[in-house]
Design a protein around this nucleic acid. Structure first.
Length: 416
RNA sequence: CGGGGAUUGGCGCAGUUGGCUAGCGCGCGCGGUUUGGGACCGCGAGGUCGAAGGUUCGAGUCCUUUAUCCCCGACCA
């Protein structure tokens, strides 16, 4: 893409109503637009990052047998009444609305009930299990207080998967497969080394622990206790002597840290399937309960988390896997030879499958360099009168201080 | 929801004890000089001061109500 076709612009100052680093950088670089507190629109660059993250998650969910669906934002009341999650006294962060005739509706709080309800048409036999279904969709939660830019919003993009198994043993197997997929997701996003599977409260309906995936960060809202050797952590909400014993962890091995919850996985047992009257028939023709699990990843929160973590005083520093473009091609000057060479390199890179943001504007060099750094594009290539004359252009990584001089062909080879 | 702070062109800000056509920087448009780290000169467009009501000869400055935003806490992915 050429910058002349990109409607967003970078700006030097962030709006004064944003104090979170992630929101400041993403707004300055033109990735997001604030609609209201806790509600952000994704502009072209931000949308590309969001999609890149979603695609990684999608690939890993598919790899463990997940089938992608798209449920609805508007939700009927009755199924939530069956599980006792409609009453404001029970769940107080619903956004609710009404049909013209007065019928009450919910707005995409979570999707256990609609998924179970939809699948009840299809799950009848043990042969239909196990089954995992997921979606990547906006969730709406009426938080008392939105905060920290993309880290806690009222509307956010989430991947939520739901698994259905014939018994606890089968469920445990699926659960661990998905847990392994989560590790691969966070590795691919570049945060695997400091993202911990963390014991957390399983909720009031199960004595089991749930697990959160907590990424260490000073801006995190959660306090966790990390056992670095075992690569596991404990949320402070379940940090008791009794629980530590169950987990096989020792207090002296645990270090207190702040972290951002980027994902969670929950054993649901048969709470939702039972409540909605969904069962399967086993080999003996007997009706049996279905054991479910749910598995979330905060996609838009990850954009904020990654922006917050991968940044320096010059701006964003995206990992290649999620960067909106791999290369920022800065053309300096508009001599015919320079334009021709830069155009050619742009075409060659694009043809080779490399995503390029081609700065074809007449801005001054300093501004182009600053833009490429603020946007956090992993590689910067400079084509100028100087480099055209020398037959080699500049190639520099976002965090490198010195550029290398490399021929056009070698640049294409190195980057593709 | 409790406590604290804020709201003045697109963005960042200034605006004395109420007093003249509400300023500055960035950005934007036009012209010119520039061209390897956010250039410079000139000209220009753009705000009725979050909203409503009130006090006053006169309100961005005072009073009341209200909306929105940020931070801390409680709550929550």
């Amino acid at each position: 893409m050429r910058t002349s076709q990109l409607f967003t612009k970078t700006r030097k100052q962030a709006p004064s109503d944003e104090t979170a680093i992630n929101a400041q950088l993403l707004i300055k670089a033109g990735f997001i637009h604030k609609e209201m507190a806790g509600v952000y629109a994704f502009l072209p660059l931000g949308k590309r990052v969001l999609d890149n993250i979603a695609q990684i998650i999608r690939e890993e969910m598919n790899a463990v047998g997940g089938q992608e669906v798209q449920m609805t934002t508007l939700q009927p009341k009755d199924i939530f009444e069956k599980t006792d999650r409609w009453d404001d006294a029970k769940v107080d962060n619903w956004f609710k609305t009404k049909l013209a005739n007065g019928t009450e509706l919910g707005m995409g709080l979570t999707h256990e009930e609609p998924i179970v309800d939809a699948l009840s048409d299809y799950i009848q036999s043990y042969k239909d299990l196990p089954l995992s279904v997921y979606q990547i969709q906006s969730k709406f939660r009426n938080e008392l207080r939105a905060k920290s830019g993309l880290l806690r919003g009222r509307e956010f993009l989430m991947k939520d998967m739901y698994s259905f198994s014939r018994d606890q043993a089968q469920h445990d197997e699926v659960y661990e497969q998905i847990a392994a997929a989560y590790v691969r997701v966070f590795d691919r996003l570049g945060i695997g080394d400091f993202t911990y599977r963390t014991y957390a409260d399983g909720g009031i309906f199960t004595k089991r622990f749930s697990h959160e995936y907590q990424t260490l960060s000073d801006v995190g809202e959660d306090t966790i206790y990390v056992d670095e050797a075992k690569k596991i952590a404990v949320n402070e909400e379940v940090y008791t002597d009794e629980n530590l014993e169950k987990m096989g962890l020792k207090k002296e091995d645990l270090v207190q840290k702040r972290a951002v919850e980027v994902g969670n996985i929950f054993p649901l047992e048969s709470k939702y399937t039972d409540a909605l009257g969904v069962y399967y028939i086993d080999e003996n023709g007997k009706q049996q309960p279905i054991i479910a699990g749910c598995y979330g990843i905060g996609v838009s929160r990850l954009v904020g988390m990654l922006a917050e973590h991968f940044s320096d005083d010059k701006g964003l520093v995206w990992p290649e896997a999620v960067a909106p473009f791999k290369v920022y091609l800065a053309r300096l000057g508009d001599d015919e030879a320079v334009v021709a060479e830069a155009d050619k390199l742009y075409n060659n890179l694009t043809t080779a499958g490399v995503t390029v943001l081609y700065d074809d504007s007449d801005k001054r060099p300093g501004e182009k360099f600053a833009d490429s750094e603020l946007m956090g594009i992993p590689y910067r290539v400079v084509v100028s009168g100087r480099t055209v004359e020398g037959g080699a252009h500049e190639l520099k990584g976002r965090l490198e201080s010195e550029a290398r001089l490399v021929s056009s062909d070698e640049i294409v080879k190195a980057l593709s």
